[in-house]
Amino acid sequence: MYFPDADEWERRDPEAVGLDPAAVEAAVDYHKLNGTPREQINYDFADHETWDEAEGDHGQRIGPHPARRGGPAGVVLKDGYLVAEWGDTHRADQAFSVAKSFLSVVAGVAWDRGEIDSVDDPVREYVDGGFEGDHNGAITWRHLLQQTSEWEGTLFGKPDAVDRNRAVGKDGEALDKSETRTLREPGTFWEYNDVRINRLSLALLRTIGRPLPRVLAENVTEPIGATDTWEWHGYYNSTVDVDGTAMKSVSGGGHWGGGLWISARDLARVGLLYLNDGAWDGNRLLSEAWVDASTEPCDVNEGYGYLWWLNENRTLWPSAPESAYAALGHGQNTVWVDPEHDLVVVLRWLRYDEDAEETDARTEQDRFYAKLLEGLD
Rank of each mutant, 00 (worst) to 15 (best):
R11S: 15
V17H: 13
D20L: 12
P21N: 09
A22P: 02
N34K: 01
T36S: 05
R38V: 04
Q40H: 15
Q40W: 12
Y43V: 07
Y43W: 08
A46S: 15
T50N: 13
T50W: 13
W51F: 14
R69N: 10
A73I: 02
V75C: 09
L77Q: 09
G87H: 01
A92E: 08
A92M: 04
A99F: 13
L103C: 00
S104I: 12
D117M: 00
G130L: 06
H135C: 03
H135Y: 07
W151I: 05
W151N: 00
G153W: 00
L155V: 08
D160R: 07
R166L: 15
R166Y: 09
V168P: 00
G169K: 08
G172R: 13
G172W: 07
D176S: 13
D176C: 01
L183F: 12
G187S: 02
T188C: 11
F189P: 00
Y192S: 11
D194I: 05
V195K: 06
T207R: 07
V215S: 04
N219P: 03
D228G: 04
T229V: 01
E231T: 00
S238F: 12
D241P: 05
D243Q: 11
G244F: 12
S249G: 13
H255L: 14
W261L: 05
S263M: 09
A264L: 06
L273V: 07
Y274C: 05
L275V: 10
G278P: 08
L285G: 07
E288H: 13
S294D: 09
Y304V: 01
G305A: 10
L310S: 03
S323A: 15
Y325C: 02
N333Y: 07
D342Y: 02
V344E: 11
R348M: 14
A356G: 08
E358S: 09
A361P: 10
T363S: 15
D377G: 14
